[in-house]
Design a protein around this nucleic acid. Structure first.
Length: 549
RNA sequence: GGCCCCGUGGUCAAGCGGUUAAGACAUCGCCCUUUCACGGCGGAGACAUGGGUUCGAUUCCCGUCGGGGUCACCA
């Protein structure tokens, strides 16, 4: 009995690894092409950090003509949720990101390097596990949970490094005969990797983002195949990223401490190691301390949050890109109308320390993104959002022609309006422009300087009778308001008033404020002339007459 | 606790031995303006700390402190 016999006993049907090596050949890609993957577990909604990874990966693979694939890591069946894959695909899609290969829904996939779902790659992992077993580089371990627990306690009591290694690796030294005997007797077991590392020795590793890092070598005999026959993350990572010919493993830095293990795994399996890029996760500040942004506690950790809030996908991606490469911001200033995909992303320039998520900054980015949209885009996107999250707004937008006029106010010119940073702001911004909404509400009419009711009535009635003409151009329109101010004893220019404020009860601005408030119910609005043009003669008269009455 | 990483204004960040220590967001003031949103100008605000090395340290080395990650048949 030798290692080969034992391997055959454990995985009798596994294919030789040469089968897979041939089935998944080196990719024929241009020089420098990057192959990356997004490899989530289908355990719930997509995390903002996951989205960031996708944004970065997509950018990097686009600019190198590489491949970005979606692999589903579902080796822990306990944690799986219903429609987990679909959820991932959909939410990433919401942000305009497509995968070149991988799962496209719960059961379908595209690409030649699949299956892209780990639970369907069982035989592949077993083939590679068998390959190691044959060489005595892996072995069956019969330790029970109790045994392991006991070992841990002893280690703890003795204050030594915990784990399954060296002298603690009890089943490592079992003879093949003994092992085979136990297996034949039906004893439960798992497969462990037989580490040849020495904890006393150091290895140096170069991470694309973090630079050189020194670690002790790995000496843990980690589990590679679990009792359910599925691999652990570490083993699946090595096998999959090798067979899928991934060149860059881009993942959150919670994985850095596994580098020695992964390096040893790749080496022992005879795989070429990919480049590792460990980025810092997005953080959240709480009680003056930083912590990883969490699905449990932080609504903004879920990418669905941005969708619900109505923050354009483009804005979220730009914000994330900026966290990735902070020079994105200056590039954006220099290229205001360029597509984000034209930006040259440099993964090695990513920050080594984690950034606290800044919603205020995101909204600023978003405000600028929206300011560049034309009215049609604003209309379409707002409507799409409203259909899902705000029925009243969706109903308001029914009248497309009118809504386009409303949304077009101060838009498309050189200094576009910047008062909307998310679609959920739109309703409040345009509410008063809709006749039924305007009259349905309980308007407070908070006037500013001129508060006297009779005076207000006088201003409005005089304006309507003598000065109002919907066909006036902007200059004429405002000149008439100045005339009105003058007629009623106010300063026709603000400057005049400021020079001798005691001379007049107020100025033309105060008069226009009265008109503004009367027409809109608000003190602050976009350009009054444009508003009046959109409202039209009938509406203006109706609004003013209502007040006069 | 062991191992590993990190530490520039409130936040994100340039910086790679000699700088008046950029810029963005936020904040404050002024200007522009019929209000607001913009836009313009300006202000306040930072190299965690103690030792070295050096003619000179934010930058290099060591310690301290602080923060984070990781030590599973989870990923």
């Amino acid at each position: 009995m030798n290692y080969k016999d034992l391997a055959d006993l454990i995985f009798p049907n596994a294919k030789p690894i040469s089968y897979y090596e041939e089935k998944y050949p080196e990719r024929n890609l241009p020089e420098g092409a990057v192959v990356t993957r997004f490899a989530p577990s289908p355990t719930g909604f997509v995390h903002i950090g996951g989205l960031m990874q996708c944004v970065i990966n997509r950018q990097l693979t686009n600019q190198t003509q590489g491949v970005f694939l979606l692999r589903i890591e579902d080796t822990d069946q306990k944690r799986e949720i219903e429609n987990g894959v679909q959820q991932i695909v959909d939410s990433i899609h919401d942000f305009g990101i497509e995968f070149d290969e991988g799962m496209i829904d719960e059961t379908h996939e595209k690409g030649n390097y699949g299956p892209y779902k780990q639970s369907e790659r069982k035989e592949i992992y077993q083939a590679y596990a068998k390959y190691l077993l044959e060489q005595g580089k892996a072995y069956p371990c019969f330790a029970t949970a109790e045994e392991l627990e006991e070992m841990r306690k002893k280690q703890e009591a003795a204050k030594i490094r915990p784990g399954y290694y060296g002298v603690w690796a009890k089943y490592r030294t079992l003879t093949v005969e003994e092992a085979a005997e136990r297996i034949k007797n039906g004893e439960p077991y798992i497969v462990r990797f037989k580490s040849m590392g020495n904890e006393e020795k150091k290895i140096r590793h170069h991470d694309v983002i973090k630079g050189n890092i020194d670690f002790p070598q790995n000496d843990q005999d980690i589990v590679i195949i679990k009792a359910d026959g599925l691999p652990t993350y570490h083993f699946a990572h090595a096998v999959d990223d090798h067979l899928m010919r991934v060149t860059h493993v881009i993942r959150s830095d919670e994985w850095v401490s596994s580098i020695p293990l992964h390096l040893e795994l790749f080496q022992t399996l005879g795989f070429k190691t990919p480049k590792y890029c460990h980025y810092a996760p997005i953080l959240k500040e709480e009680d003056g301390k930083k912590r990883k942004i969490s699905k449990r506690k932080d609504p903004e950790a879920a990418v669905s949050y941005y969708h619900e809030e109505g923050i354009p996908a483009e804005a979220v991606c730009e914000y994330l890109m900026n966290i990735g490469n902070s020079n994105f911001e200056s590039w954006r200033r220099a290229n205001p109308n360029a597509k984000m995909s034209e930006f040259k992303f440099d993964i090695s320039k990513m920050s080594v320390s984690g950034a606290i998520f800044d919603l205020v900054k995101l909204l600023d980015v978003s405000k600028n993104v929206i300011a560049k949209y034309d009215k049609e885009t604003v209309y379409e996107q707002t409507l799409e959002w409203a259909k899902r999250y705000d029925a009243e707004l969706a109903q308001m937008l029914q009248d497309k022609e009118y809504s386009l006029k409303v949304l077009g106010i101060e838009r498309g010119n050189t200094k576009p309006r910047k008062d909307i940073s998310k679609w959920s702001d739109v309703k409040n911004a345009i509410f008063y422009m809709y006749e039924d909404k305007f009259f349905a509400q309980d308007i407070h009419y908070e006037y500013d300087k001129i508060q006297d009711k009779e005076e207000i009535k006088k201003i409005l009635s005089t304006y309507l009778e003598k000065y109002f003409n919907i066909n006036d151009d902007k200059k004429t329109w405002f000149d008439k308001i100045k005339d009105l101010a003058e007629e009623l004893g106010y300063a026709r220019e603000v400057k005049m008033y400021k020079q001798e404020p005691e001379k007049w009860p107020g100025h033309v601005g105060d008069i226009s404020t009265v008109i503004r408030v009367s027409l809109t119910g608000r003190r602050n609005t976009p350009d009054l002339y444009e508003i009046m043009q959109v409202l039209g003669e009938e509406s203006i008269k109706r609004r003013i007459n209502k007040l006069l009455a």
